[in-house]
Design a protein around this nucleic acid. Structure first.
Lengths: 233, 233
DNA sequence: GGCGGCGAATGGTGCTATCAATCACTTGCC
DNA sequence: GGCAAGTGATTGATAGCACCATTCGCCGCC
């Protein structure tokens, strides 16, 4: 992983450059320029270009070279694009749109989990929610985050819809970004802990409606909190 | 088209083969085998591999070759993966999960559109809804589909969340698949026409709650009509 | 006979060289 | 001055090379 994979670094750099706006739509590139800038051969430059093209970030045309595309063409749902944008200057906006996506998806995923989760998954959700309360009250934010991520991942993957499961990484990024950006209170609000337990209980009871409602409450709170508190650092 | 982009055909073939289950998880591949099978050079085979790797369909390891991954690693939200799966044997299941995704996203997108759409977008939505009624009553399914797709695309793109906008192609694929699979009645049910007009009106009036509710009704109907995803246990 | 180490085969990684195809821009002709 | 042909730049595609990490089998030792 850390070894070689030369094209990864080039891809990351270029991807960040484009998604950050440093290389706005219409910026021309050539394989040659990429190769010389990064000290790689044209072969590698071509691979990177193809990857970027697959992500909708650029479009390559003969004789013209490679041109950067606008955001309307980007695969904004691709994990790599999301990561780059979260690392760039548009991080706040990105967190907002991602949170809105969570708001849309997670309640329905919770309902699905209430219907389809295995016994083991239901049990792990309940255990995670209980442990989150302990950690939250103890103020261990880092470990709390880890469990929070796990909680939502189980839920999304147990939803019976692999589309939702594919968003597990996104949710993890949002949660992580939120705490590491200081958008979380020093200790989680009790309501959030209550709602997580409510979701876990509803899933354990196979009560889809209750699970959906409780999850909607979680994401709704976060969403309004994120919109209201923009000055904390 | 057929002349250039040599790698596209190889990519499509391999992508379909993997997503269809013809090449299940664990299937080994080598650059050499791909090159000889499709009559292309190793460079092209490498590009295809990188693309497939980017989609999470395969993983390449030294000495071991390239192995096909399971669905849990796929980028199931990528338009190409969706297209392949829609063309494969799992089409019905794919339509169901995509419809569930629509169910999650479109109501919120409608609410967003009610808040953020431009005047032109609002006007086009109203016009599209009105024309859909005419076409629906006339029984022109093909043209109706075209407008239906347009309607939902405007809405998603006007939502103010580019994540939702990125799903426009998905929705188009679902709608198209539905009618071409004969899952649509000979003429659209009046309720659907009413709801489309209700959404358009609510967006025109900047009434986010009404838009969300009306869109929820549209997708909810479709969902239950598609074959009882619900049937709680 | 079993176990451990060493070496060879394998196959991705990356590079260079080379040719083909295309297309924008320039130049020259009318 | 306008238009068409030529030309050069740039991607598309291939072949062949060196490199190296990994794996597997063979051999020797206990």
């Amino acid at each position: 992983m850390a070894t070689t994979v030369l094209h990864t670094t080039v891809l990351d750099t270029l991807g960040r450059r484009i998604t950050s706006g440093d290389a706005p739509a219409g910026t021309p590139l050539t394989l040659e320029s990429i190769g010389t800038e990064f000290g790689v051969s044209r072969t590698v430059a071509r691979e990177v270009m193809r990857l970027l093209e697959g992500l909708g970030l650029v479009r390559s045309k003969r004789r013209v070279g490679i041109v950067v595309l606008g955001i309307e063409d980007w695969n904004v749902l691709d994990p790599r694009v999301i990561r780059w944008r979260l690392e760039g200057p548009g991080r706040d906006a990105q967190l907002r749109t991602l949170t809105e996506l969570r708001h849309a998806v997670e309640p329905l995923a919770a309902a699905g989990a209430a219907r389809h989760a295995t016994d083991a998954e239901r049990a792990e959700l309940v255990a995670a929610a209980a442990r989150m309360r302990l950690l939250g009250e103890a103020g261990d934010l880092e470990e709390f985050l880890r469990l929070d991520v796990r909680f939502h991942e189980i839920l999304l993957r147990a939803s019976g819809n692999e589309m939702f499961g594919a968003l597990a990484g996104v949710v993890a990024a949002v949660l992580s970004g939120r705490t590491h950006l200081g958008l979380m209170p020093a200790s989680p609000v009790p309501e959030a802990l209550d709602q997580h337990e409510a979701v876990a209980r509803a899933v354990a009871d196979a009560d889809a409606e209750a699970a959906e409602a409780a999850m909607a409450a979680i994401v709704g709170e976060v969403r309004s909190a994120l919109g209201g508190v923009e000055r904390s650092s």
